[in-house]
Design a protein around this nucleic acid. Structure first.
Lengths: 141, 141
DNA sequence: GATTAAAGGTCAAAGAAGGTCAAAGAGGGA
DNA sequence: TCCCTCTTTGACCTTCTTTGACCTTTAATC
């Protein structure tokens, strides 16, 4: 059974991410399309079907000259900032302090905020967020 | 990943400011343009897109002989950022994209997060938050 | 004071990405 | 075969960047 073009691109991206120390890569849509000899929108298709937030990835893009597509893997290793944040929010939700929709919203927002920050600030912002959320919940928000 | 000319100039200016004790620098448009081998208006472009008041800078200029461009980093005006964030969230809620409880929660959390940040990153984090929230809402969260 | 040179300002056009969406194609299963 | 889903393509859109021609302001010079 022949692998689809989409799967090929998917694998390729995943290898790139695996090889990166940071779990984050930047690609150019046209370049990747050229590599696979396909139209650029094919890359968009792969990103939307296999690198969604539910799949554990954050995708940020920039248009114009020197534009890029940045893909960040939200890793599951303990000690990882993103993972810590997710576990924290899960705990909070388990205590019925947040509704599911609220939890999902906060996860989505904070992971996206974090993806755009250099690591040294990400930690700080996440910690500030956790403190702020605790404070909010304690006040009987 | 190659950076755009605009980003390069942006970073260069930010380094100059960081190195200055006063948080204020003076440059000459033509000189900077020559440094980056580009047209002078490119510098104007960078200033208008990345050194606006919203971004936390004040730009003053003087034409004629011995003209200059003075860029001042504003560090105290953090209250405006809060106001802006609150207005943004109010607008979002007015569009019925967030429930009142959610809006209040986000306001409380983000103001607290912001309070713990050095002014120069607060703007960045708030902007990232706004972008992340928009992204979340667009996906039909 | 008038003139000229030396800045910076503006704006629109061209260029360089990525985004979107719908239509056509390909496979697999009932 | 017929359908349904996933994939592939391409036309067209939006956003951000780069460049250049032309304008305005200010200082220096005559």
């Amino acid at each position: 059974m022949k692998k689809s073009l989409a799967s090929g691109i998917e694998q390729y991206i995943k290898v790139l991410i695996a090889r990166s120390e940071s779990g984050q890569i930047e690609i150019q849509r046209v370049e990747l399309a050229e590599t696979f000899a396909c139209v650029p929108s094919q890359v968009s298709y792969v990103l939307s079907t296999r690198f969604s937030q539910e799949d554990g990835y954050i995708v940020e893009t920039r248009r114009g000259g020197q534009g890029y597509i940045r893909i960040t893997e939200v890793r599951k290793e303990t000690g990882n900032l993103d993972d810590k944040l997710l576990r924290f929010l899960n705990e909070v939700q388990a205590k019925k302090l947040l509704k599911p929709r609220e939890t999902e919203m906060l996860k989505s927002i904070m992971l996206n905020v974090g993806a755009g920050l250099p690591a040294e600030y990400k930690s700080r912002v996440y910690q500030g967020f956790a403190a702020a959320l605790r404070k909010y919940l304690n006040k009987g928000g």
